[in-house]
Amino acid sequence: MDMSKAYIKSVMENAPQADQKIALDKLHIAQSLGRAVNKVRIEENKTLINQGVELLKGTRYSWLTNPENMSEEQWDNFEPLRNSTLKTARAWAIRQMAMSLWNYKSRVWAIKAWKKWLCWTQRCRLEPIKEVAKTVKKHL
């Protein structure tokens, strides 16, 4: 469901037991997390360039592409970045974990998984990710 306050209010007023049926919208959360990962990448890239390191230069689409849509060659090129200690790699891992949370069949287990994800994001020290997490928490 769209995370707009007006939309949620309307659904809550007009749908019986809406609070038990509403689900977060994967598309909007994916977009928000994608923007957050990109913000982390941009900030980190500026810092690295000032240090004379161009490790993140030209990697924007690698971080924003769904791994399922990557060719084997793209994945092989991306894997060292993904496994690195970069802040961007951490932000990407947080995003990927969130994308996997729609696979739960049980509402109870899904909520537990989202709460665990929220704990991770609150400790991550990546402000763009934490902003998205606040939005998710508000709607959870």
Rank of each mutant, 00 (worst) to 15 (best):
W102G: 14
I49N: 10
A113C: 10
M3K: 09
V37N: 07
C124K: 03
N38Q: 13
E68D: 15
N14I: 04
Q122N: 15
P80T: 05
A36Y: 01
K21L: 06
Y61K: 08
Y61R: 08
K57Q: 15
P16H: 09
I49C: 08
R125F: 07
K116I: 03
K138Y: 13
S106E: 12
D19E: 13
D25A: 11
P67I: 02
L86Y: 00
P80M: 10
P67V: 02
S84F: 09
L64T: 01
R125C: 11
H28D: 02
K138C: 11
G34H: 03
A110H: 09
A23K: 14
K9A: 15
A91G: 07
K137F: 08
W63R: 02
A110Y: 01
Q96Y: 05
W102T: 12
R107M: 13
W63S: 01
V37K: 00
T65W: 07
A15W: 11
S10A: 14
P128T: 04
I22V: 09
W102R: 09
A110N: 14
L101I: 01
T65E: 05
Q17N: 13
W109H: 14
Q20G: 04
K130V: 06
K115D: 08
W109C: 09
A113S: 10
N66K: 11
S62R: 03
N77L: 12
R107E: 15
Q31P: 00
I42V: 12
Q51E: 13
S4E: 15
A15D: 02
I29K: 02
S10C: 11
Q74S: 10
L64R: 06
G58L: 07
K46Y: 13
P16D: 06
K116Y: 12
I129F: 03
Q31N: 08
E43K: 15
W63F: 08
G52F: 11
M70N: 07
L55G: 02
W63G: 00
A6P: 00
P80E: 06
W117A: 10
K87T: 01
Y61L: 13
D2W: 13
G52P: 05
L86P: 00
R107Q: 13
Q17H: 10
S106D: 12
E54G: 11
S100Q: 13
